[in-house]
């Protein structure tokens, strides 16, 4: 009896945690590449930022490819994002989100058909 309760409460607690994190994630999931770039990159890379200003049209497509495949993890794994709960950038941004950000950056790179900032 006692044991079943315990298990039940663990299950419920687990469900609550999942549901809560689901809530936080639902917003990110709905965002498109542009919104994600603004929310998760521009926070640290706006105009006059000490980290350098980066919008999609700062770099050419080759440079973005290289950044996402070679340097992103190295240069961001130890960077703490105070705007998102003080977690590491690479933990805040899920692989799924990163894929969307990457596509947006490449589609609107300086040498694309439609260079853009993230607004």
């Amino acid at each position: 009896m006692h044991r079943t309760w315990k298990i039940a409460s663990i299950v419920v607690a687990g469900m609550v945690v999942i549901a809560l994190s689901g809530l936080a994630n639902a917003r990110d999931k709905k965002m498109d590449g542009q919104a994600l770039f603004k929310e998760h990159c521009k926070v640290c890379h706006g105009a006059d930022s000490d980290n350098g200003e980066y919008t999609p049209m700062t770099l050419i497509q080759d440079q973005w490819e290289e950044f996402f495949s070679d340097t992103y993890v190295d240069t961001h794994k130890d960077v703490v994002d105070t705007a998102h709960g003080g977690k590491k950038v690479t933990e805040v941004i899920t692989p799924e989100m990163l894929e969307k950000i990457k596509k947006f950056a490449i589609d609107h790179a300086a040498d694309s058909e439609h260079p853009m900032t993230c607004g």
């Binding site: 049209m57 770099l59 050419i60 300086a110 040498d111």
Partner: peptide
């Protein structure tokens, strides 16, 4: 628009 990014500008 790449004036600050010489590597990108050289490529283009």
């Amino acid at each position: 628009i790449l004036w600050k990014n010489q590597v990108g500008l050289d490529s283009v």
